[in-house]
Amino acid sequence: MTVVFLLILVSLVVALGFLAAFLWAVRSGQYDDDYTPSVRILFDEKQTEND
């Protein structure tokens, strides 16, 4: 049964990893604008000849 200790600790480490990912995402500004990216993703880049 002692394996449960290990399991719990591992799962907590994984969860902390997700928390760290969330904090990083907030810090890098991904939560500052929760609307524009949803529009931006729908634009097609078809006029590549101008680039």
Partner: peptide, 19 residues
């Protein structure tokens, strides 16, 4: 200035609540 501390607090509380 965009204040992100509130989002951090909410995230931390949600994380701890679930676990």
């Amino acid at each position: 200035v965009t204040d992100r501390s509130f989002t951090y607090k909410l995230g931390v509380a949600g994380f701890a609540f679930g676990n």
